[in-house]
Design a protein around this nucleic acid. Structure first.
Length: 162
DNA sequence: GCCAACGTTGGC
DNA sequence: GCCAACGTTGGC
């Protein structure tokens, strides 16, 4: 099975890449995704060893800020059954959980964030390797989205200033 | 803070 | 099954 590539969004005010780096094992469960399209990816598509672009959204400078690796494949999000959690979903049946999550482990924090503005600029200037990115599509707001290898590689290069 | 785009809900 | 109303996302 060849590895796949993904982009996961997080609001840095809520959970930033530095929060991930501060975990003792640099690992976190990616809880709280409450969108069916993203759920399907988490449950069915994302495998251990897949690579992840960590993206900061809804902030001053939206950007890819690092990479992570999937360290545990899809399993039911425990927060959906916790009445005290913001992510509690009273309609989810424990025998048939509605929401799933994966664990990710930090791989690298970029020395230089690759900003959304920069990606848009590159796409506008016709850089083929990036212009079809899901992230750049109009109205795209999927919090877990597929990324092509060439897109992943291009962003890694950009983070190194190439 | 504004607002466009999108997803979900619920009445019919 | 349609669709209007509403809530959320997220860039700007």
């Amino acid at each position: 099975m060849t590895i796949k590539y993904w982009l996961m969004k997080s609001e840095p005010n809520t959970y930033s890449i530095d929060d991930l780096a501060a975990q003792t094992d640099k690992t976190t469960c990616w809880e709280g995704v409450r969108n069916y399209q993203a759920r399907n990816l988490l449950r069915d598509e994302i495998a251990v060893g897949d690579r992840v672009l960590f993206y900061h959204s809804a902030c001053k400078q939206p950007a890819v800020v690092g990479t992570a690796v999937v360290s545990k494949a899809g399993y039911p999000d425990p927060f959906q059954f916790d009445p005290k959690s913001n992510y509690f979903d009273p309609k989810s049946d424990p025998n048939n959980p509605r929401w799933y999550l994966v664990d990710i482990t930090l791989e690298s924090k970029f020395d230089r964030p690759v900003t959304l503005a920069e990606l848009r600029e590159l796409a506008r200037s016709g850089r083929a390797s990036i212009k079809d990115m899901v992230l750049l599509q109009k109205g795209s707001r999927l919090s877990v989205q597929p990324v092509r290898k060439k897109e992943f590689d291009t962003i890694l290069k950009m983070s190194r200033g190439v």
